[in-house]
Design a protein around this nucleic acid. Structure first.
Lengths: 162, 162
DNA sequence: TTTTCCATCATACTTTAGTTTGATTTTTTA
DNA sequence: TAAAAAATCAAACTAAAGTATGATGGAAAA
């Protein structure tokens, strides 16, 4: 009998408390048995009946509690950062085509924007300073500017360099 | 009858429903008492005893369930999107302070970055070209560059100009 | 109050940038 | 294939940028 209750109780998370409950149940049964002596009319079946009632209604109580207890709601708020348009820079090819700027001229323009002097650009591109100057002149003419600093500003504004 | 009780119960908080279950038992007892008239053999005490056992063990069951079972948690996740400005440009005042660049020098730097010549800058600031050059020299010295184009590139990189 | 920093200007000079003219070679395109 | 466009280079020049030195007046800090 007690074992049966115990096995039933094994399904509960806290095993120790469950067995404690079983112990109480056992005690109760013993007390009932003592009482039985005073009530001779009650036979052995009565014990079983009582135990049965106890088990059934314990089960009912548990079922009730589990069924009717509302699950505690835990609200977790997750803040998600979403970067809107992380500036996907793209060179405006249309603008380049419109101005008729050649590849070499763009190269020179980019190096100018990086702060290099004509001589440094010449060294980097393995050409003479004269050629760099020629490219510059044509570039400035196409971009309608007269200084490299203006070219830098306008080029960035028109998105023809990074 | 039972349906009515059930619908009634649905509107009560769970912990109160448990006690209402006791109320149902009481009703049951009354019914039993009615039946008692037909079954004289059944002892009055026995009824009460059974009812008592039922109530006690139901209570125990509820107590057990509440005590031993972890309340089922329903995790409600709310996703909140936070839109972040991709490039909230801000002049790096620390950098400016670190380099010890004066207000006038910044002004000149900004105009240089806009592609203006020294003469144009002088006209705009109502100062002489000499002064512009002086500012430039000090600026380049502080920024550790030797050309205005370099100054532009570095200034933008260090975020001391837009 | 004296020193330091900032802003201003000038002169003379060097360096770099930009212009003009003209030429050659290669690559692309009609 | 011939013409156009692109890339290359050079010399001579002008213009602009940058350097060096020195000076002055005002404002802020020590």
């Amino acid at each position: 009998m007690i074992r049966k209750v115990k096995t039933l109780l094994l399904h509960f998370p806290n095993y120790k408390q469950a067995s404690f409950y079983g112990f109480i149940l056992a005690l109760l049964l013993i007390v009932l048995r003592q009482l039985e002596l005073h009530f001779l009319l009650i036979n052995h079946l009565f014990e079983l009946y009582t135990a049965g009632i106890a088990v059934i209604f314990t089960g009912l109580g548990i079922w009730l509690a589990v069924k009717l207890t509302k699950p505690a709601k835990e609200i977790v708020t997750i803040e998600k950062e979403r970067f809107v348009d992380p500036d996907p820079f793209e060179i405006d090819q249309n603008e380049l085509a419109r101005l008729g700027i050649s590849k070499r001229e763009i190269e020179v323009l980019q190096l100018i924007a990086q702060g290099l002097s004509n001589e440094e650009i010449a060294d980097k591109l393995f050409i003479s300073v004269s050629t760099v100057k020629t490219h510059s002149v044509k570039l400035f003419d196409k971009m309608d500017v007269r200084r490299r600093t203006q070219a830098i500003e306008k080029a960035k504004r028109l998105k023809i360099i990074a």
